[in-house]
């Protein structure tokens, strides 16, 4: 069995962060495929192009909260409002520069949000995410 390629979608307007995340993912998950969206809208548009080919959907979405055009929360709201069973199965991890307790509580109200982390992405977090994914996939 060939290791399945894991795909990530990074939704963040911080270009430096996106660059770094990619770097980290390359180090710790060399087989990863990484996409980038600079805000919620771009991410949503990207995902909607894949509704018909669900196998191409990203395995993990790293979602920032504060973004222009459509922020993290608005993105989640839009996603839920679509009532698409395929999109509802997405694995979303929220990333924020500082974890605000209110944000933690709020994130729990979205079924697709698996967890919320404070930036930066670390090896530890990467392993944690991968473990959860494989668990759910199993």
């Amino acid at each position: 069995m060939t290791p399945r390629k894991i795909s990530f979608l990074l939704v963040d307007d911080d270009m430096v962060n996106n660059f770094l995340t990619k770097e980290f993912l390359e180090i710790y998950v060399p087989e990863a495929e990484t996409y980038t969206a600079l805000n919620g809208k771009e991410a949503l548009d990207f995902l909607l192009t894949m509704v018909d080919t669900p196998e191409n959907l990203p395995d993990i979405i790293l979602l920032d909260i504060n973004m222009p055009v459509l922020d993290g929360w608005e993105f989640l709201d839009k996603l839920e409002s679509l009532k698409n069973p395929i999109l509802e199965k997405l694995n979303i991890y929220m990333f924020t520069s500082s974890v605000y307790y209110k944000d933690i509580d709020k994130s729990k109200t979205y079924a697709s949000v698996k967890n919320i982390f404070s930036k930066p992405l670390t090896e530890e977090i990467i392993h944690k995410m991968l473990n959860e994914i494989s668990f759910t996939n199993a």
């Binding site: 911080d14 430096v16 770097e23 980290f24 520069s97 500082s98 930036k119 930066p120 992405l121």
Partner: peptide
């Protein structure tokens, strides 16, 4: 302040690591 200040700081930490 805390949020927006910390974002570049987090980036810096990562950059230093790499």
């Amino acid at each position: 302040t805390s949020h927006n200040l910390r974002a570049p700081v987090a980036n810096l930490i990562s950059l230093i690591k790499l």
